[in-house]
Design a protein around this nucleic acid. Structure first.
Lengths: 338, 338
DNA sequence: AAAGCTGATTTAAGCGATTAACTAACTTTG
DNA sequence: CAAAGTTAGTTAATCGCTTAAATCAGCTTT
């Protein structure tokens, strides 16, 4: 059926070791033999079996990408275009280097390790999860791991992230500079040491800097999806709080919120201003365009792959942390009051 | 380092065959031995190596998902949330059945085959590509393949799709029923036997049914991305054609077009009506909500996985084609003229 | 002319699993 | 009670590849 090394060897009239040497060039081979082998490879359409190779080489040229699955059965992470953009760039960069990616959504922490063992993964990229006690096991396993968007103090894990606090500081600052004083904060589930928590602190810092007291009732916590954005907008309006501006901790929330406000008869930015966070591709195509804090999403994926491959090539690499730049993008969702 | 079958066997004081039998239950094993083996597995945190297993079982529990890469270096397919939604449901369903998915964007047709051989894939799902001459090679390789959104007459390939022509027929019909007579059609690159071509014919059919002559200058061809939608809106306006409605062959195009119209000072739906196609998650959160033809995107992924696994289990399965339902979803982007 | 090099190729072991075939100790059963 | 069947376990081959070590022919050397 499928041609194997042995088939090629037979056709070329050499041993299979010779074929292997021709293919990976680790021995000198006479021009004549090389010719015959390559011709046989061509004739049989031979492609090496990477799993078999991996078995003897003890690698797999496979990197695992783990994305969070908040609840069992939950597929949202793929629908959040933030993830798909990161995934896209990871796939692209990995493929350039001869790696394939194996994507798995998962909740139980331990299953990363299981996956890694099952598939002999050369490395793992974990997107947006917080290291828990189970991570200890991963350390034992020695497998290179790069975290994206995780705040992890552990010296073992590499980290590619942005300065989340600074990002929402920028967003909030912008709103304040435009003259807004009553600003609400829409945020996903706040977890200790999580991205959302950091973004909240950035909001608080900006308020403090402008001498505005932080009031907890202006913080609306939901999930990172459109529906939650709509709902938070409703809750803000229902609260009767006199907010003129909203800082959303994610574009997805901001977009949902815009919809929520419109449905309640409020105009953006006329009645209420919104600043997002992420700069998803869609954000510039909304009406009004969403003013937001841009992070270079696909750069995140690229850097993660680079770092992971570097660690794979150099197993004693110590923890690296890279913090990517942010930038406020002004579009039409904020009204200047001054 | 990693525990292997042999390690477990040693610790349990049995042969490795016994461990294997305990683990996959293909032989009767005494309660006592089973106990000892399981305990050893637990102690060593043993997880079987699926690649090694695959080598002897001649399978891999891996299914490949191939998405189109229009141009080299192009990562758009991941940013198109249609793809990510399909991917998400494929991943989910596959994982339920103990399969992992290997995602690869690729242009060269032949490389699917290479991928399949390299990784010993148990099957392949191909999203949105047209079978070309290279597909002949795939047939020879005997690997189960399910196409999503492909019009392929070849009796070999399974197919999960929608009735694209009927979908845009629905969209157009709706516009016409609302009293629009001059309607433009925004479409991605039209290829013979491709999805976009079919959607065009649906548009034509609806016109014909309403006795409206089809005029080619009302068809605007671009690519499937937001920017292209914006551009097509611009081209329509520049053309001076008196269109009051637009049928977009994809929500992405419709969304871009809405933005384009707004920027040119036209209101949707007041000045111009738009109907989309796909019903992406974002579409309901726009303002106005996008009237569109809904296809059950994640059902597509699910059906594809089911069919693929069925074929894997039953290699002589003959070609199956499944056509999923469509439904017009009315929201706010169409104005009733009558 | 025997010994020593070289360079090209082969042999064979090993990677981590599965499994057909074999063995040994117990049960059946006619 | 001997022949046949069960049961529980082991041995060893195999999957497709890599690679250390062995082989071997052809060439210097001295």
């Amino acid at each position: 059926m499928r041609a194997t090394l042995k088939d090629v060897a037979q056709l070329a009239g050499v041993s299979s070791a010779t074929v292997s040497y021709v293919l990976n060039g680790k021995r000198s081979i006479s021009a004549d033999t090389r010719q015959r082998v390559l011709e046989a490879v061509r004739q049989l359409d031979y492609v090496p079996d990477l799993n078999a190779r991996g078995l003897s080489m003890r690698d797999s040229k496979l990197i695992g990408v783990v994305v969070p699955q908040t609840e069992p059965g939950d597929r949202l992470m793929f629908q959040n275009s933030f993830y798909s953009e990161v995934l896209g760039s990871i796939e692209f960069c990995a493929r350039q280097q001869g790696y394939h990616i194996l994507i798995s959504a998962t909740d139980a922490n331990e299953s990363y390790l299981t996956l890694a063992k099952q598939r002999n993964l050369d490395g793992i990229i974990v997107i947006g999860m917080y290291p828990s006690e189970f991570y200890q096991q991963m350390k034992k396993s020695q497998i290179p791991i790069v975290l994206i968007d995780s705040y992890c103090n552990d010296y073992y894990y590499h980290n590619i992230r942005i300065d989340d606090a600074y990002g929402s500081y920028l967003a909030t600052q912008h709103l304040l500079q435009c003259g807004h004083r009553d600003t609400a904060f829409f945020v996903g589930r706040i977890q200790e040491n999580g991205v959302m928590k950091k973004r909240l602190t950035g909001y608080q810092q900006a308020l403090a800097e402008f001498g505005i007291p932080y009031r907890e009732e202006y913080v609306f916590e939901g999930q990172i999806d459109y529906a939650s954005g709509v709902e938070l907008a409703g809750r803000l309006l229902a609260s009767g709080l006199p907010a003129t501006g909203v800082v959303a901790a994610a574009d997805i929330l901001a977009i949902g919120a815009m919809k929520g406000f419109y449905e309640a008869g409020r105009r953006v930015p006329d009645d209420i201003s919104i600043v997002g966070f992420d700069d998803l591709e869609i954000s510039q195509y909304l009406t009004p365009g969403l003013t937001t804090v841009r992070q270079q999403i696909s750069l995140k994926g690229q850097k993660a792959v680079e770092l992971l491959l570097k660690h794979i090539a150099q197993p004693d690499l110590t923890k690296q942390e890279e913090i990517l730049p942010l930038q406020l993008i002004e579009r039409g969702s904020v009204r200047r009051l001054v």
